[in-house]
Simulated assay, not measured.
Amino acid sequence: MTSTSGPHHDTGSIKAIDGSSVHRITSGQVVIDLQTAVKELVENSLDAGATSIDVRFKNYGLKSIEVLDNGSGISEEDFASIGRKHYTSKLTTFHNLTTLTSFGFRGEALSSLCALCESVTVTTATKEKAPMGTILELDKRGEIKSRAKGVRQRGTTISLTSLFSPLPVRRKELERNIKREFGKALTLLNAYALGPCCGLGSDKAVRFSVTNQPDKGAKSTHISLPLPSSSTPLSLRTVRAGATTLWGPKALDGVIDLDLDLDVPRITAKQGKGKHKAEIVDTLEETLKIHVQGLISSPTPIPGSGSTPRSGNGGRSSTDRQFFYVNGRPCSMNKIQKAINDIYRTFIPSNATSSQFPLVIANLTIPGDAVDVNVTPDKRTILVHAETELCDRMKVSTS
């Protein structure tokens, strides 16, 4: 008797999946939610050398997302390649990953968005062509569907409509949770506004603006970080200015500069000697020079209170204001984050009435050959060599 309760299995020969299906399957893994879609477009603008980026949502991104920049624009000879899978100007060989300075490098973003949106339109102009630009409409495969002339100063505008419309289940989930997803997108945009856009880990600052045009009657959203004046050095002063703009002047009360130089052992695996020849043992042969720069809450408690940190020291009840970067790239660093929170907690009295977490904005400058940024398609997860040892050094330096 053959069971019919499980999924149907085709017992035919193994065949290649057709190209269209492969494109849709992999695209759904690259762009997994609203914040990923926005992140990919913002990173393209940063890689194009933009000093001004506007992100415009309609109905929290359900209707459309538009990112405008004043970057270098796209050359006419590259038009046919911009929506194709694994076409990029940032990487030629796998070895280039160790010296990577751009945010994007996989050549998947725009191609994936073409497969996942109702429409994708690119309006662009280079310095030589402005104010005459070109309007390109891309099809589901990333190929040019139509081309027209338009007015555009140097830079690029990319417009997406109806994200996830080809994926009914994911689209329905987005519609049900759009306010929460929009909040996640804003948090991620805050990371770009506070980090590379303020000059943290970069040699330039970027004016950053985010707006939302909701349905009639709903409250609009606006975030704007002005470009620092040319006389302002790109340092922690600009990060402080950005944080103040986002959260208000009291947000940085009790927040101090974080500036650490750490020598972290570089671990190499070698074969054992003698009777333990077959064993692989870790040896420490040299050190990595890692610089940690940013801002962090001072955990000074109220004198004599013994209960809570001093009012206005930046301590919070959640980790919503903790942002981490590796070489200027916003990323998730769970071990580093836990180490910092554990250190901070040791300064909080055991009888404190509530949990406290510090405000943290931290950029780690790490040699390229000690970092792997090619872990997940969204590039948010980064592997750092000897991360456990790095956490230990940070605990010693900050405690």
Results as ranks from 00 to 15, higher is better:
residue 278 A to Y: 10
residue 382 I to W: 01
residue 132 M to L: 12
residue 34 L to Y: 02
residue 92 T to G: 05
residue 292 V to G: 09
residue 395 K to H: 05
residue 208 F to I: 04
residue 213 Q to K: 10
residue 136 L to S: 03
residue 365 T to C: 07
residue 282 D to T: 07
residue 6 G to A: 13
residue 282 D to F: 15
residue 321 R to K: 15
residue 206 V to Q: 11
residue 162 S to Q: 13
residue 345 R to I: 00
residue 330 P to H: 06
residue 191 A to M: 09
residue 363 N to R: 03
residue 96 N to M: 15
residue 104 G to S: 12
residue 186 L to Y: 02
residue 71 G to F: 09
residue 377 P to R: 09
residue 135 I to H: 15
residue 45 S to T: 02
residue 310 R to M: 14
residue 85 K to S: 06
residue 306 G to E: 05
residue 340 I to R: 01
residue 180 R to L: 13
residue 301 P to I: 15
residue 207 R to K: 15
residue 221 T to S: 13
residue 88 T to H: 11
residue 300 T to W: 03
residue 360 V to H: 02
residue 45 S to G: 07
residue 187 T to A: 13
residue 113 L to F: 08
residue 9 H to A: 13
residue 180 R to Y: 13
residue 365 T to K: 12
residue 6 G to F: 10
residue 207 R to N: 13
residue 378 D to M: 05
residue 238 T to K: 05
residue 156 T to A: 04
residue 201 G to F: 05
residue 292 V to T: 08
residue 190 N to H: 15
residue 86 H to C: 06
residue 73 G to A: 08
residue 146 S to M: 03
residue 200 L to A: 11
residue 369 D to R: 07
residue 58 K to G: 09
residue 306 G to M: 06
residue 165 S to F: 02
residue 392 D to S: 14
residue 138 L to N: 00
residue 118 E to N: 10
residue 183 G to S: 11
residue 267 I to K: 12
residue 119 S to D: 08
residue 143 E to Q: 12
residue 304 G to M: 04
residue 293 Q to G: 02
residue 24 R to D: 07
residue 174 L to N: 00
residue 354 S to M: 00
residue 174 L to C: 01
residue 57 F to T: 05
residue 66 E to Q: 15
residue 114 C to F: 08
residue 110 L to H: 00
residue 289 K to N: 10
residue 246 L to Y: 04
